[in-house]
């Protein structure tokens, strides 16, 4: 009886896979699929932390307190003065442009005047509604007398004013906390430094000390 059944089963169901076989296949497949994962784990345990990951954590640990990006309340007062300074410069250049200039000098002076206006506008962008948007009356009174006469005198006055502006920004940079404001002031300051050299050369100076502004003017901060 048993033998007969065995023979029947062998012939009748050769293609069927039993439950045990299926389970075995599943376990075998799972074991195979886990092999690369396990080897990855094993290798990862022998390596150190990737440099990229350690950078961020180490840098964060080493750096001091990050400065704010936006201007602080104290910065706003400094930036407002900077804008008044730029608007004063624009007003003084407007006054100077009323004089009779040779064409080659006129294009330089006009370009520098436009630059000061651009600086004032950039500061407005940073200050928003807090910008006073006006020139400094005190600075206008202080410089108006020098900004008169022939182009030579005007170039000398502009040279002095640009140097004073550079000195003012040096003082402001030493106080600003917000990096956005510091970045803008630095880009203005470095351009105004170049103005001085160009104006000295335009005025015909050949003195290297004067061309490189060896003697910087006094800062105007607090005189507005």
């Amino acid at each position: 009886m048993d033998i007969e059944v065995t023979e029947i089963g062998h012939v009748a169901a050769p293609q069927r896979v039993g439950r045990r076989a299926l389970l075995g296949a599943g376990v075998g497949g799972a074991a195979l699929s886990l092999l690369p994962l396990m080897s990855g784990r094993a290798s990862a345990s022998t390596t150190t932390t990737p440099p990229g990951e350690s950078t961020s954590t180490a840098a964060a640990a080493a750096s001091t307190t990050a400065p704010p990006k936006r201007p602080t309340d104290a910065d706003v007062a400094l930036l407002d003065f900077a804008q008044q300074l730029e608007l004063t410069a624009r007003a003084l250049y407007d006054k100077a442009l009323a004089a009779k200039w040779p064409a080659d000098q006129l294009v330089v002076v006009t370009t520098i005047r436009e630059a000061h206006e651009a600086y004032a506008q950039s500061l407005s962008g940073l200050l928003g509604r807090k910008a006073s948007g006006t020139a400094s009356e005190a600075l206008l009174r202080q410089f108006s007398t020098a900004w008169a006469g022939t182009p030579d005198k005007l170039l000398a006055a502009a040279y002095d004013f640009e140097s004073a502006a550079v000195a003012t920004y040096a003082e402001i940079l030493g106080k600003l906390q917000g990096t956005d404001a510091a970045q803008l002031i630095a880009s203005i300051q470095i351009a105004e430094a170049r103005h001085g050299t160009a104006l000295a050369d335009l005025a015909g100076s050949s003195d290297v000390g004067e061309l490189l502004v060896d003697t910087e003017a006094a800062s105007l901060l607090g005189k507005g």
Partner: peptide, 19 residues
């Protein structure tokens, strides 16, 4: 079936295998 199962499980694992 074993190979297919292994491929399926391998595809589902994390991609960061380390070195």
């Amino acid at each position: 079936m074993t190979i297919g199962g292994a491929a399926l499980l391998a595809a589902c694992r994390k991609t960061e295998a380390g070195t």
